[in-house]
């Protein structure tokens, strides 16, 4: 099933990336090529194989419930594109 422009648009919306029409078109073609390539995995028999999400056999890594210093508020906010008082500021969120 070829990747349609509207599918790329849906995906770009999910990823919150604005793309113009031309970009959508190019991406549909490029994604199609890449997806055709990665589709080669479908030829492989993977029944009974466990997925690897961690290549190291590590488990049970914890920290103790102990306080560590927080950032100074000025350091927290110094990179903010928009702020007021102690807050980060964003365009109004409408539910």
């Amino acid at each position: 099933m070829p990747i349609s422009k509207s599918e790329v648009k849906y995906t770009a919306d999910l990823a919150r990336i604005k793309l113009n029409d031309e970009e959508l078109e190019i991406l549909a073609i490029q994604l199609q090529k890449i997806v055709d390539f990665i589709d080669k995995l479908k030829a492989l028999d993977i029944s009974g194989i466990e997925p690897t999400s961690h290549v190291l056999p590590l488990h049970n890594v914890f920290r103790q419930d102990e306080l560590t210093p927080s950032l100074k508020t000025e350091d927290t906010l110094k990179n903010a594109p928009s702020k007021e008082g102690n807050f980060f500021k964003v365009p109004k969120v409408i539910d």
Binding site: R16, N79, A80, P81, K92, V93, I94
Partner: peptide
Amino acid sequence: DGVQYGFRQMNSSGLIDMYK
């Protein structure tokens, strides 16, 4: 996403537009 650091497109209408 332009909220806490880095580049924010200031000429946006609303939050989702700002993200995109």
